[in-house]
């Protein structure tokens, strides 16, 4: 066990060393995703990203001023340099200034944040609704008024690989821990309302690319919405501790153009019974794997 661990650690260490020695070039390829919040694919997610960068830069500037003054003083006002201590000990003017300025800065941050928040909480005018139910440990998606409904669990490959000492090379698993059997399929350019709830304990549905994270609470329904601009596959995870397999109930959303989505939906309705059978079969497989 420990030798497998050591070799994995060793591999990582050399990977890290190579990345470092190749310098910025190799790092830059992954830097966007690894270091910062994704910009995302909704208007809201872009606003959130901008707010994030705004407050980040504000903190950097304040930090530069405060730490700058502190470091200057550490360098210039040290006893070993012969600095004699001054004896001022307060100044009402200065104190009012440094109470007022942060206050103004905070207002400048809070106002745009409030605007975005109000937009995010406005679920009115949605063109379609999907009810999402969290279970220990899977998601159920029900397309309201469409009679389509299915469960979404961690993909089998990941599930095998994640067992203790499975011996599976994780690099060989597609999207390790971020893949499911039945992804949620939705249309782009459509305001989609999600109705979130849970059957047992609290879960939270999170897809960073949509800047959507909302708790799924048993007995209550929370609403949120998204309008996706670009077709693609988007991944996220359950974000509220929900017990043993909290780390193993990912969210995968496939956004298709409205036409493709309609085709998919029609196929679902046709294959509804068959698909349900498949979902049950998968569940059993998962149970067997454990």
């Amino acid at each position: 066990m420990s030798s497998a661990f050591m070799s994995r650690a060793g591999a990582l260490m050399s990977k890290l060393a190579i990345a470092a020695s190749l310098g910025m070039v190799s790092q830059a390829a992954t830097a966007e995703y690894a270091l910062n919040m994704p910009v995302g694919v909704t208007e809201i997610s872009r606003e959130v990203y901008d707010l994030h960068m705004l407050v980040f830069y504000v903190c950097c500037v304040i930090g530069a001023v405060v730490f700058g003054a502190m470091i200057y003083s550490i360098i210039a006002h040290r006893k070993s340099k012969g600095a004699k201590a001054a004896n001022f000990h307060h100044s009402t003017v200065v104190e009012i200034v440094w109470t007022a300025i942060p206050f103004v800065i905070l207002m400048a941050l809070a106002l745009p944040a409030a605007k975005t928040l109000v937009k995010m909480e406005n679920t009115r005018g949605a063109e379609m609704s999907i009810k999402v139910t969290g279970y220990q440990w899977k998601w159920q998606y029900e397309y309201i008024d469409e009679d389509v409904s299915f469960y979404s669990t961690l993909s089998q490959d990941s599930n095998f690989a994640r067992q203790k000492n499975s011996g599976v090379d994780l690099e060989s698993v597609d999207n390790y821990l971020l893949d499911v059997d039945n992804p949620l399929v939705v249309p782009t350019d459509t305001k989609i309302r999600l109705l979130l709830t849970a059957a047992d304990v609290i879960h939270a549905w999170w897809v960073p690319d949509f800047a959507v994270k909302k708790d799924a609470i048993p007995g209550y329904i929370n609403e949120t919405w998204m309008q996706i601009d670009e077709p693609g596959t988007y991944r996220g995870q359950c974000a509220e501790l929900c017990g043993r397999d909290h780390g193993f109930m990912p969210v995968v959303v496939i956004a298709k153009t409205p036409e493709e989505y309609q085709a998919w939906l029609a196929a679902q309705k046709g294959a509804e019974s068959a698909l349900n059978g498949a979902a049950i079969a998968t569940e059993q497989n998962v149970a067997l794997a454990q």
Binding site: V48, V55, L109, T116, L117, W206, A211, K213, A239, L241
Partner: peptide, 15 residues
């Protein structure tokens, strides 16, 4: 302070 910004906290929360 970044966490305090509600809309952005939706991204940071529980991460």
């Amino acid at each position: 302070l970044m966490l305090a910004m509600t809309p952005v906290d939706f991204q940071y929360h529980d991460s």
